[in-house]
C-alpha cells in the first residue's frame, strides 16, 4: 500500500488521541503544584503545599480503598477461579443460566444495584461488608470473562491429562500446569479487579458507611467543597496509587506469552 501518507496520518491521529487522554492528567499535576491556578498554571509560583495537605487528608481513604481492592482481588480468585472452571468444563443448561446471571452486574447500572442492596441488606452496611460484597459482585463478571475461555482450552486439558496419567497429584497439576498456562489471564484478573474496585464510585457512593469513606468518595467530596488546587492534588495522589497497577499491566504485556502470540 501507499505507506507514507497513511502512516503519517495514522501517527498524527494516534498522537492527537494520546494528547486527548494525557492533557487532563498533565493539567491536574500542573494545577496541583500551582500556588493559585486561577491566575494561570504556575501563575503565582510553584508549590508542593497542596500535595502535602492533600496527602494528609486523603491518605487514610487511599489505604482503606487499597485494602478493600486487595480483598476484592482475593475474593475474585477464590470464588471466581472455581466458578470459571465449572463454567468452562461442565457445559450444561445450568452453566448457561449462571453465565447469564454473571452478565447482570455488567448490564445493570451500579446505582440501581446499590439501591437494591441497601434495601435488602441494611444490616450489612455499617461494617462495610455490603460495600465489599458489592465490589466483588461488580468485578466477578470480568474475572469470569477472562478465565473461562482459557480454562476451556483443549490444549490445557490435554496437558493436565498427560500430567495426571504420568502420576502427578491433582494439586501438582494445578500448580505446575493449570496456573502457569493461565498466568496471563490471572494477571489480567488481578489488575482488572483491583483497578475497578479502587476506582469504584457508583456503589461506594450509596453503600459507603459514612464513618469510613472510600477514596473516590473523598475525591467527590473534595470536588464539591474544596479549591481546585487541593482537589487536583488529591486526584494526582489517587492516580499515583494506580501507577503500580499500570506498571504491572505494561510488564504483563512485555512478557512474551508462552503460547499465543499477541496480535
Amino acid at each position: 500500500m501507499r505507506g507514507l501518507p497513511d502512516t503519517l496520518g495514522t501517527r498524527m491521529a494516534v498522537g492527537l488521541c494520546v494528547v486527548f487522554v494525557l492533557l487532563p492528567v498533565a493539567t491536574s499535576v500542573a494545577v496541583a503544584t500551582s500556588v493559585s491556578s486561577a491566575r494561570g498554571l504556575w501563575g503565582d509560583g510553584v508549590t508542593l503545599q497542596w500535595l502535602v495537605t492533600g496527602w494528609e487528608q486523603i491518605s487514610p481513604t487511599l489505604g482503606r480503598s487499597t485494602a478493600v481492592a486487595l480483598g476484592v482481588v482475593a475474593a475474585n480468585l477464590v470464588l471466581g477461579g472455581p466458578l470459571a472452571m465449572w463454567l468452562a468444563r461442565s457445559p450444561s443448561r445450568l452453566t448457561r443460566a449462571v453465565s447469564f446471571l454473571a452478565t447482570l452486574p455488567l448490564a445493570v447500572p451500579g446505582i440501581a444495584l446499590s439501591i437494591g442492596l441497601i434495601t435488602v441488606y441494611p444490616q450489612l452496611r455499617p461494617s462495610g461488608l455490603l460495600l465489599f460484597l458489592g465490589h466483588v459482585l461488580l468485578t466477578l463478571p470480568f474475572t469470569l470473562a477472562a478465565l473461562t475461555p482459557v480454562l476451556a482450552d483443549q490444549e490445557l486439558q490435554d496437558c493436565e491429562n498427560a500430567a495426571t496419567t504420568l502420576g502427578a497429584a491433582g494439586w501438582r497439576v494445578l500448580a505446575t500446569v493449570t496456573v502457569p498456562f493461565s498466568a496471563t489471564a490471572l494477571v489480567q484478573v488481578v489488575i482488572t479487579a483491583f483497578a475497578l474496585s479502587f476506582g469504584e464510585f457508583n456503589i461506594s457512593f450509596f453503600i459507603n458507611p459514612p464513618a469510613a469513606p472510600m477514596a473516590p468518595f473523598a475525591l467527590f467530596d473534595a470536588y464539591s467543597t474544596q479549591r481546585l488546587e487541593l482537589a487536583s492534588a488529591k486526584t494526582v495522589l489517587f492516580m499515583l496509587c494506580l501507577v503500580p497497577v499500570l506498571a504491572l499491566l505494561v510488564a504483563a504485556r512485555r512478557t512474551p506469552s508462552t503460547r499465543k502470540a499477541r496480535p
Binding site: 477464590v78 472455581p82 466458578l83 472452571m85 465449572w86 466483588v136 491429562n161
Partner: peptide, 21 residues
C-alpha cells in the same frame, strides 16, 4: 474428563451472584 470442575466448588460464586445480584 472435566478435571477440576465441580459444582460444589462453584457454589459460593453462584451464591454470591444470586444473593447480591
Amino acid at each position: 474428563t472435566a478435571r477440576f470442575s465441580s459444582l460444589g466448588a462453584a457454589v459460593p460464586g453462584i451464591a454470591l451472584l444470586v444473593a447480591f445480584g
